Amino acid sequence: MDASPLTTARPGARLALAAPRVSLSASHGIPGRAGRTVAALGARAEVHGICDEAGSALYADLVDSDMQEIRAVLRAVLQVDGPVLDLAAGVGRLTVPLLALRREVTALDVSRDALRGLAGRLLKAPAPLRERCAMVQADMAGFALGRLFGAVVLAGCSVALLDETGRVGLYGSVRDHLAPGGRFLVSTVDHGALPLPPEVGTEVHAPSGRTYRMYEYWEPDAPTWTLTALPKDRRRGQVTVCTTTQRVLCPGQLEAELERAGFVVAARTQVTEHGYRQPLVLLDARVA
């Protein structure tokens, strides 16, 4: 168990972290204090990505506690008519709230495990809500669904999962699926906008009642950043660790890419509290 406790002044409070390195094999390649925590767990650590069954379940529980982006996306979707396409839908963090708006929603994800988790979640929902959802296993870097949507949503900074070539394919596919007047709502992290240390930690209380410790690691000017989460209570048994390393894609670069792909960015909104984390920014783009 980690000997030095993580102090929180309030829910979501961040703190600076610094300490010696451990071997990449022991830490599973996870940097910083998160890696040292995983290394200390030894064989008890079960490390997963965000797309497999165990990792996607933990990640979904973790991000369900953050309503700020969800509220921002729902406000934007309410301004347009028609069905919604939820890209990188995962287990339904946004899919279910979008369905609650009485919209038809297509949830697209490359992970069969994630969509299986969404299906299980929908089984607990009222039948009318469940019947408005279609699920598609496909790569968001290139898809053809044969219909148009009033809004296409790509939240959770998942756009950064794609390399430059993948993003070009994404933008073309989105453009081909937007109805006239439709909106592409896409979020990304504005790394470097705040003078934060390389690693910051948060104690997250999820709606499930579980408490997690989440670490975000980014060295200034580095091309990638790493998010790692694991349960606060690690005293016994196997410990599920969820980690993902993503590309840094700042809002200015994303906006420039969208404009080159034939979009115009109509709005750019910071959706997280000032000073709470490296800011999450939501871009609202339309076909030019």
Rank of each mutant, 00 (worst) to 15 (best):
residue 109 D to K: 02
residue 163 D to I: 03
residue 35 G to S: 07
residue 140 M to R: 15
residue 235 R to H: 05
residue 180 P to F: 12
residue 20 P to A: 14
residue 173 S to G: 01
residue 214 M to V: 06
residue 103 R to K: 09
residue 230 L to M: 08
residue 268 R to F: 05
residue 52 D to C: 00
residue 198 P to F: 01
residue 114 A to N: 10
residue 27 S to V: 14
residue 231 P to V: 08
residue 19 A to H: 14
residue 149 F to W: 13
residue 236 R to D: 10
residue 35 G to N: 04
residue 130 R to N: 15
residue 53 E to A: 03
residue 179 A to L: 13
residue 94 L to F: 07
residue 19 A to S: 14
residue 113 D to V: 03
residue 215 Y to E: 05
residue 49 G to I: 03
residue 132 R to Q: 15
residue 247 R to L: 14
residue 98 L to Q: 05
residue 188 T to S: 10
residue 186 V to M: 05
residue 74 L to N: 06
residue 142 G to R: 12
residue 67 M to V: 09
residue 32 G to P: 08
residue 193 A to E: 05
residue 228 T to Q: 10
residue 264 V to K: 10
residue 141 A to R: 08
residue 203 E to Y: 06
residue 27 S to K: 11
residue 228 T to H: 10
residue 4 S to D: 10
residue 3 A to F: 07
residue 188 T to Y: 02
residue 55 G to R: 01
residue 110 V to M: 13
residue 82 G to P: 04
residue 161 L to T: 11
residue 78 L to Y: 02
residue 24 L to M: 06
residue 41 L to A: 09
residue 205 H to C: 13
residue 228 T to F: 09
residue 195 P to I: 01
residue 159 V to H: 00
residue 69 E to H: 03
residue 186 V to W: 00
residue 232 K to A: 13
residue 283 L to C: 04
residue 151 A to T: 14
residue 73 V to G: 05
residue 133 C to I: 15
residue 66 D to Y: 05
residue 9 A to H: 12
residue 42 G to D: 07
residue 12 G to V: 00
residue 253 Q to R: 15
residue 243 T to I: 03
residue 137 Q to L: 11
residue 76 A to I: 08
residue 99 L to M: 08
residue 127 A to W: 15
residue 34 A to M: 06
residue 33 R to I: 08
residue 171 Y to C: 00
residue 206 A to C: 08
residue 140 M to K: 15
residue 221 D to W: 07
residue 272 T to Y: 07
residue 236 R to E: 12
residue 191 H to I: 00
residue 227 L to Y: 11
residue 255 E to Y: 01
residue 221 D to V: 06
residue 287 V to E: 09
residue 73 V to W: 07
residue 9 A to P: 04
residue 231 P to T: 09
residue 237 G to K: 07
residue 156 G to L: 00
residue 179 A to E: 15
residue 170 L to S: 02
residue 232 K to T: 10
residue 141 A to Q: 15
residue 107 A to L: 09
residue 1 M to N: 03
residue 1 M to D: 06
